Structures are given as structure tokens and as C-alpha cells.
Computed example of a mutant assay.
Amino acid sequence: MKDAIKMMESKMSPESVRRAHIKAEQDIMAIRLAQIREEQNIKQSDMAYFTQSSVSKIEKRKDIKLSTLIDYLDSLGMGLKIITYPKGTISEKSEKVLLSV
């Protein structure tokens, strides 16, 4: 599978590859939100501060406001940590916590 992806990427411009990776990460985040909720054994209709339809919309969105994400995770009893790091480095020493709620 990696070879197929590399082959496709080789035929795309670097900007197209970058946009495709961003879109993939957004899709993955939407899936992960639902997985986190399901792991907590919480139904969409049981989310505090949200209606079932709003939870469904949040879990399908590819772009979400940070404040909505914080409220969503808070309803699940989860926190959020955003870490910044210089691209292309592996060193954790370069990481900075931007937000922890």
C-alpha cells in the first residue's frame, strides 16, 4: 500500500500532496472523535450540553472550532493538549505546550 501511495504522490505537485495530507488528517480526526466517545460508552444522545444532532454534526465535520472541540471533549470527561514543534525534528526538547485544558 505504501508503494501505491508513493506512486500517486510522485505524480502530484508538492502542494497537492500537502493538501491531500491535511484533508486526510481532518477525516481521521472526525473518525477519532466518534471513537473516543464510543470508548467512553456514551451515546450521542447522552452527551452533556449537546443535542444528538449537534454531536452527529461535530463528528462529521472536517473543520471544527477549537472552543467546540474543547466543549465536546469536556463533555466526555477528556482534556485537550496542543503541542507545537518545529517540523522535521524528532526532539521532544523543541516541543512547547500551546494549550492544555
Rank of each mutant, 00 (worst) to 15 (best):
I36G: 00
I36A: 06
I36S: 07
R37M: 06
R37V: 00
R37K: 10
E38K: 15
E38F: 15
Q40N: 14
N41L: 15
K43I: 09
S45N: 13
S45P: 06
M47V: 12
M47K: 01
M47S: 02
Y49I: 14
F50Y: 11
T51L: 04
T51K: 11
Q52C: 09
Q52P: 01
S53V: 14
S53G: 11
S53W: 07
S53E: 15
S54M: 10
S54W: 07
S54T: 12
V55Q: 01
S56L: 08
S56P: 00
S56I: 01
K57V: 11
K57A: 15
E59K: 00
E59D: 09
K60F: 12
K60L: 10
K60G: 10
R61D: 06
R61A: 15
D63L: 13
I64E: 06
K65G: 00
K65P: 04
K65I: 07
L66G: 04
S67D: 12
T68K: 05
L69R: 03
L69A: 02
L69S: 03
I70C: 08
D71S: 14
D71P: 00
Y72L: 03
Y72R: 00
Y72V: 02
L73H: 02
D74G: 08
D74Y: 08
S75E: 08
G77K: 07
G77H: 02
G77I: 04
G79D: 02
G79P: 03
G79S: 08
G79L: 06
L80Q: 05
K81W: 01
I82Y: 00
I83L: 04
T84K: 08
T84W: 09
T84R: 13
K87F: 12
K87Q: 12
G88A: 02
T89F: 04
T89D: 09
T89Y: 03
T89G: 00
S91I: 05
S91N: 08
K93I: 04
K93F: 07
V97Q: 06
V97H: 07
L98Q: 09
L98C: 06
L98S: 13
L99P: 02
S100T: 10
